[in-house]
Each structure stands twice: as structure tokens, then as C-alpha cells.
């Protein structure tokens, strides 16, 4: 009989991704509903200082797979260690963040374990004792409810979609002996945009489109920084070479669900809306009163973004007492 919920934690350079806390908190809710334990598993090379933090989000047990060979995420090694653990412990549910890494890992795990996978879930609920996962399809034009048959049921949850809940408990830490198996992928190097807030995890996103008329995004960057947010872009801005592809929001870019999305000089094409419609509050700044984005925005300002955005930044500064 499969039993228990397993949450896979994701850390990069010793820092947990925010979606890890979301996965643990949601995992805790599922475990409470199923009346079972929540176990967290974490992989890496240097985890002594961070592992116990997982207890604060509801993990009863924290399984630490620590090895120099796990210092970087490699699909083959991580899949093997986690699949072996799952085969041994037989959890009923596996939950993890649908980050770039989580998508790759969960897809490969589902194939290794022949297990059902609901990718990029935005909500999870129970119908009787069965999990129903809600996930967007067709670029968010459809929300589908998915039933999963088989074990374990793998739930990869979309960043910023579920609530983080702190719990008082402190989970017990157990070391796991790891055998990474035959690794063929080789890590060469990685570069991180230091100091940048990750677009999919940001609480605020300020995006610029063709209305930016050039690669100078200073006004957008300043506002984003004041709001501790991230900078996004429309595909036009990316196609023009003004911003890197990793900044693109939309159906063929990233999907973001921040609390606040500010679209500057973006017309509101359907493919762009697909990437930001699930934002809680949308603000549009556009000089064209007929721009379609206004019909999707909670608040709109008609005007020149180069005039309006710096004025908004001024106000935010005042509000935050930074003037």
C-alpha cells in the first residue's frame, strides 16, 4: 500500500526556491487530508545548514541525500536517487515545484516509475479520496481538471500559485546513502543572473513591449527594483533584441502569476495575455486608448510610458520613505 506524501525540495547554491516552500505547504495540506506524514527530500553537495529549514513548512521527516556528485542538478543522477527512494518508500503522492528543473525531473520520473504526472498545477483538491489537479492548457485558455490513476501521483505545481504556510514543527533529519548510478550527463558550468529576481517567482513584474522603442529599459528596471520585482518583456521586445529570451512573458515564453503585473507599451496580444492573465492585479500603461490590454487590466493609464513610469517610481519612493 502506498502511503505518505513526498515533497522534493529544490535548492540552488544553498538557497531554496520559493516554489519549494509552496510545494511543502501544499504537501502538508494533502498529508493532513490523507492523514499521513509529509517527508521532504533534498539533494545536493552541501546541505548541512539548510536542511532543517524544511521542517518549518510542515515536513515530518527530512531526507538528506548529500554527495559531491549531486552538487549540480543533473537529470540522470537526480532521477536515479529520487526514483530509488520512491521505489523503496512507496509514497502515494510526490509533490514538487514546476520550475525548469522540476519540469525536467518530474517528466523523467514519471517515465521511470510509470507514474501519473499532473504538470504545472495551479490548484489541487480532493473529490472523495481522489486528488483532482487543475492545470492550464492551451496557454491558459482552458483550465482542466485531471484525475490521476496509479502510484505515486506526481504533482508538479506552478510557482506562485499556492500559499506558503509556516508550521511550528521541526522535522527529523535522516541521511540517505546515495547511489547515483551510471551518470552520463556532465556538468560544465553555470551562470546565474545574480541579484535578479526570478521572473516566475516574483511578486511584482514590470514588463516592457515594443513601446519601449529601444533596448534602454532603465525606466522599467528602476520601477521593478523599487518594487523588488522582476523585469519582463513582450515577444516584440525580445525579437528586437532589446531583452533576452528568458525575459519573454507569454504563450511561448514564461507564464507568470505575480500579485502585480505592470504592462508598459504592450498592446495585449492573445499570446502575451496567455503568460500573465493569472496575475492578481494588472496595470497597463499605453498611449493608445484603444489598446486591447486595457480591456484586460484592472487599472489603466493612458499616456506616454516614458513620462508616466518615472512618475510612478517617484510615488513609490515616497511611499517607501526612500525620498
Amino acid at each position: 500500500m502506498s502511503q505518505g506524501v513526498l515533497a522534493i525540495a529544490e535548492q540552488i547554491e544553498g538557497v531554496f526556491r520559493k516554489v519549494t516552500y509552496e510545494a511543502l505547504s501544499e504537501g502538508r495540506r494533502i498529508a493532513d487530508r490523507l492523514n499521513c506524514d509529509l517527508t521532504a527530500i533534498i539533494l545536493g553537495a552541501d546541505l548541512d545548514n539548510i536542511s532543517k529549514e524544511l521542517g518549518q513548512y510542515g515536513a515530518d521527516r527530512i531526507i538528506v541525500a548529500q554527495s559531491p556528485t549531486l552538487s549540480e542538478y543533473l537529470t540522470d543522477a537526480y532521477t536515479t536517487v529520487i526514483a530509488d527512494y520512491i521505489n523503496k518508500e512507496n509514497p502515494a503522492v510526490v509533490i514538487l515545484g514546476a520550475s525548469t528543473q522540476g519540469k525536467d525531473l518530474s517528466a523523467r520520473l514519471s517515465a521511470r516509475l510509470n507514474a501519473p504526472l499532473a504538470m504545472d498545477c495551479v490548484a489541487i483538491r480532493f473529490e472523495e479520496n481522489n486528488i483532482i489537479a487543475t492545470r492550464p492548457m492551451y496557454g491558459g485558455k482552458i483550465l482542466a481538471d485531471i484525475a490521476l490513476d496509479g502510484n505515486p501521483q506526481i504533482l508538479a505545481i506552478r510557482p506562485n500559485a499556492m500559499t506558503i504556510t509556516n508550521t511550528a514543527g521541526a522535522g527529523s533529519i535522516e541521511k540517505l546513502d546515495t547511489d547515483t548510478g551510471n551518470m552520463v550527463l556532465q556538468f560544465i558550468e553555470k551562470s546565474l543572473d545574480t541579484g535578479k529576481v526570478e521572473l516566475t517567482e516574483a511578486d511584482t513584474v514590470v514588463s516592457g513591449g515594443r513601446g519601449m522603442a529601444g533596448a534602454d529599459f532603465t525606466v522599467i528596471e528602476e520601477l521593478a527594483q523599487l518594487l523588488d520585482g522582476a523585469v519582463g518583456a513582450s515577444r516584440s521586445a525580445v525579437d528586437e533584441g532589446w531583452r533576452p529570451a528568458s525575459d519573454q512573458v507569454g504563450q511561448t515564453g514564461k507564464v507568470v502569476s505575480p500579485n502585480l503585473y505592470i504592462a508598459c507599451g504592450i498592446s495585449g496580444a492573445i499570446q502575451h495575455l496567455a503568460g500573465m492573465s493569472s496575475s492578481k492585479v494588472v496595470v497597463a500603461i499605453n498611449k493608445d486608448p484603444e489598446a486591447p490590454i486595457f480591456s484586460k487590466a484592472d487599472f489603466g493609464i493612458e499616456g506616454d510610458l516614458f513620462e508616466i513610469v518615472p512618475l510612478i517610481a517617484e510615488q513609490v519612493k515616497k511611499l517607501k520613505g526612500r525620498i
Binding site: 510509470n114 501519473p116 504526472l117 492550464p136 483550465l143 481538471d145 490513476d149 494588472v282 486595457f294 484586460k296
Partner: peptide, 22 residues
């Protein structure tokens, strides 16, 4: 193999409505 995941319902998410012009 039989599909392990099944769509049991679909809905169109509530459309974002235009709000206020400031």
C-alpha cells in the same frame, strides 16, 4: 499502457475584465 492521467472537466477561466482608467 492505458492513460494514467484523465481530463475529467474543462472550463474557460473567468475572463479578465477591463477595470478602471485612472
Amino acid at each position: 499502457g492505458k492513460p494514467l492521467t484523465r481530463i475529467v472537466a474543462m472550463q474557460i477561466p473567468p475572463e479578465r475584465k477591463g477595470g478602471r482608467m485612472i
